[in-house]
């Protein structure tokens, strides 16, 4: 499960970088740096400008990956809590 969560995390880096490049191109260096430091800003900016920049599919993919990552993390956390510990 952690490997799958890691893979989803790695995959979500791709849409993040695509939107980040758009952010640098459209808004300049300062907004781009803010986008690196705070990915949530990049995500919000991406959705607000999804139609005008034609990146709706990228944003949908990023959102799906975020939800998948969150679900996997919750599943992993709950399975870690319910798995009985082996006592020697």
């Amino acid at each position: 499960m952690p490997i799958l969560a890691k893979l989803v995390g790695l995959a979500s880096l791709v849409p993040f970088i695509i939107v980040l490049i758009k952010l640098f191109q459209q808004k300049g260096v300062l907004h781009g740096i803010l986008g690196i430091l705070c990915a949530l800003y990049t995500f919000i900016w991406g959705w607000i400008n999804a139609n005008t920049l034609n990146i709706k599919n990228v944003m949908i993919l990023w959102t799906v990956l975020i939800i998948a990552g969150a679900v996997l993390n919750i599943m992993f956390a709950s399975s870690a809590l319910t798995t009985p510990q082996l006592v020697p």
């Binding site: 995390g9 790695l10 979500s12 919000i44 607000i48 919750i74």
Partner: peptide, 28 residues
């Protein structure tokens, strides 16, 4: 409004112990 809403949602999830926004750099 979008930043405030997202920040409040994320802070609320974090405060409640649920998983909020996960950083793509950290998770990757």
């Amino acid at each position: 409004t979008a930043i405030c809403g997202a920040a409040l949602l994320h802070l609320g999830c974090t405060a409640a112990g649920h998983f909020g926004w996960s950083c793509p750099i950290l998770s990757a």
